[in-house]
Simulated scan of single mutants.
Amino acid sequence: MKIQKLRAIAGVAFATLITAAASPAAQPSVTMTSFGTLRDGRAAQLYTLTNIQGSKVAITNYGGIVVRVIVPDREGNFADVVLGYNDVSDYTKDSPYFGALIGRYGNRIAKGRFTLDGRTYKLATNNDPGGLPCSLHGGNAGFDKALWDATPVAEKDATGLRLHYVSKDGEEGYPGNLDVTVTYWLTDKNELRIEYAATTDKATPVNLTNHSYFNLRGEGTGNILGHVLTLNASTYTPVDKGLIPTGEIAPVAGTPFDFTTPHGIGERIGQKHEQLTFGGGYDHNWILDRGNAGARVLVKAAEVFEPVTGRVLEVLTTEPAIQFYCGNFLGGANIGKSRRPYEKHSGFCLETQHSPDSPNQPRFPSTILRPGTRYETTTTFRFSTR
Rank of each mutant, 00 (worst) to 15 (best):
Y121F: 15
P251I: 00
G279I: 04
D149R: 11
G36T: 00
N127D: 15
L178Q: 10
P320Q: 09
V308P: 00
V315N: 12
I368V: 15
V252N: 07
S358T: 13
P175H: 07
I52P: 00
F143P: 00
T221S: 15
D240M: 02
A302R: 05
C134M: 05
A124K: 07
L288K: 04
G170Q: 14
T115N: 02
V206K: 04
G142Y: 04
G84A: 10
S355A: 12
G160Y: 02
V67Q: 14
F381I: 01
A295C: 02
F278H: 14
N190G: 04
L17S: 10
P245Q: 08
F305C: 04
F381V: 03
L163K: 03
L330E: 02
V315A: 11
I109C: 08
I70L: 06
R119K: 14
H227Q: 15
A43S: 15
V228C: 10
R193L: 13
I59V: 14
T317H: 08
I265V: 14
E219A: 14
F348Q: 02
T261D: 06
T159L: 11
N210K: 03
F257C: 05
G220C: 09
Y105E: 12
R7F: 11
K2C: 01
L186S: 09
V308M: 11
S34H: 04
G63R: 01
F329M: 12
A293N: 08
T379E: 12
V312Q: 11
T255Q: 09
A198G: 04
K93I: 07
Y85Q: 03
A25D: 10
H227E: 15
R370K: 15
I9K: 13
F381Q: 09
W286G: 02
A22S: 15
G112F: 07
A124E: 09
K241A: 12
F257V: 02
H164V: 06
G112I: 05
T48Q: 01
R268F: 14
R119V: 12
K56D: 01
A44T: 00
F364G: 04
T235A: 13
A21G: 00
L298E: 10
F143K: 01
R340F: 03
R370S: 11
V153N: 10
G294Y: 10
K111N: 14
P371R: 08
A301M: 13
A301N: 11
G139N: 07
E172H: 01
T115P: 06
P24S: 06
V12M: 13
Y85K: 02
Y91G: 00
K189E: 14
R113T: 08
H137E: 01
T204G: 08
A79H: 13
I335A: 12
S384T: 15
C134E: 07
N328H: 06
N51D: 12
I102L: 11
K241L: 04
F214H: 09
D289R: 05
T367D: 14
L231E: 05
L136K: 05
I70T: 15
P341V: 09
G176F: 10
D157W: 01
E376Q: 14
P238V: 03
Q271C: 04
E319W: 01
L313Q: 03
V82L: 11
L163I: 04
E343I: 00
G347M: 05
D94M: 06
T50W: 01
P256R: 08
I265S: 06
K56N: 10
V308K: 12
A197M: 10
A302G: 05
G103C: 09
V239G: 08
